[in-house]
Design a binder for these strands. Structure first.
Lengths: 235, 235
DNA sequence: GGACGGTAAGTGGTCGTACCAATTTCTCAA
DNA sequence: TTGAGAAATTGGTACGACCACTTACCGTCC
């Protein structure tokens, strides 16, 4: 029995692929506005309900953006747009996967820091310093986590690779970071964190890529240890 | 003016967050079956249409899986499940982003190869060898790309970190790889690729992490060069 | 004539119902 | 006991109606 060409799939999936292809082919440019849901549905030959599901899927992928009352637009297709789903992994994972996430970060972030050492500008260094003092003065866990997060974000941004920054952004989701800090609370490791941040900061000032790489590896090594213990506790 | 608590968002988004939270909290375990779309909609207090969109979103994220006629299930929540959207970036990107993607791969894959050198088993080495010869004998581009892809996949799997493997899997989407090879066609760089693969392979046999790391970095450096030229051509 | 404000048109978001298609479960006969 | 077919279950699709937010238009007032 010959297979009907393009049959064994749902209409919604076909619509998703169609739009995605049009974007990949350049027929739909970043920022461009798409036709109405109703028109799109008519053009692709499916109901508005199904079309909406396709749009929802593409929205989650970070390819499209729907603005209530205004229309549907192609995103800028920046890595950050396409990779923000990434954070879900960090939110949901635990045990082994948590450890694996940190280990990937341990590979990427030192490399990012090394690149940042050669590229970060004066303003970036000032903002880093500000985050460090703000974090030290912070009182609530919420606050401290925020500054910690921002410290690392500035460095990864300075590395000049948006894909790298987006991935590390996902690995460092807020909920994940909060969990780590919660676990630390009782052990009083805050001073060590401050010292490690300072170590990284100084390497950046001195434009010392290898120093930044090593300091960052050490810093994340501590988190890795935590994840390892966390995993053991679950068993 | 007091803000209505939990108001300024769509019902669908609320449903997405609700389900996601239930999974993160462990109320919904991997592989578990969920209630009917109709029941879920009733429980969460929204229409079936909106509920379906929420489910579609979670499906794209790799958190849920809907089987026609059978029901809705939580996936195994393996990194591979949650990260297969990752490939979209590689499919759609071009120019600068293409270069950035390769650069991230240049950071991750050498590390993966180094880890694999210490962990890969006899069977893995045999499969690697098989892919190498199959690739050398390949005639169509399709075929060669397939074996090339598989060669790298085996190594990243052997590294023992599913998150790492999933990310690299996304970075190495088939369509992306095909584009690279298409660009190479005229230059006759096949021999060099074979030689580089062999270099990596021998380092793995010798259980030489640093050798594997370096050989892989060199190999991907070549791809980076291609991406750089590709980017320049677009301008 | 130009700025302002309100109204109407456009468009995504939600709802409800009906029906189709794949799967699972049940039933009954061989 | 077993196996084939019927029935119930459940996700997939299609309409049609209405709501909520944006944008654009148009008339009024300064």
């Amino acid at each position: 029995m010959p297979d009907d060409t393009g049959a064994r799939t749902t209409v919604t999936q076909r619509a998703i692929d169609e739009i995605k292809t049009r974007i990949a082919m350049g027929e739909l440019a970043p920022g461009q506005r798409l036709p109405t849901e109703r028109d799109l549905a008519a053009d692709l030959g499916l109901s508005r309900s199904s079309m909406r599901e396709a749009i929802r899927a593409l929205t989650v992928m970070g390819v499209l953006e729907a603005r209530h009352g205004a229309g549907i637009y192609v995103t800028q297709l920046k890595p950050g747009d396409l990779l923000d789903t990434f954070g879900v992994v960090a939110e949901i994972s635990r045990g082994d996967t948590l450890l694996h996430l940190v280990q990937v970060r341990k590979i990427l972030e030192p490399a990012a820091a090394a690149a940042a050492a050669a590229r970060i500008d004066e303003e970036g260094l000032i903002r880093l310093r500000a985050e460090m003092t703000a974090m030290e003065r912070g009182t609530t866990a919420e606050e401290i986590v925020g500054h910690d997060l921002e410290f690392h974000r500035i460095i990864t941004e300075a590395a000049g690779n948006p894909v790298l920054a987006a991935i590390l952004g996902g690995l460092n989701s807020r909920t994940f970071r909060a969990r780590v800090w919660r676990g630390y609370r009782e052990e009083g490791v805050f001073p060590r964190t401050f010292r490690e941040h300072d170590e990284i900061y100084r390497s950046l000032i001195e434009r010392d890529p290898d120093g930044a790489r090593i300091a960052t590896a050490v810093h994340i090594g501590a988190v890795e240890e935590w994840a390892r213990r966390q995993k053991d506790d679950e068993e």
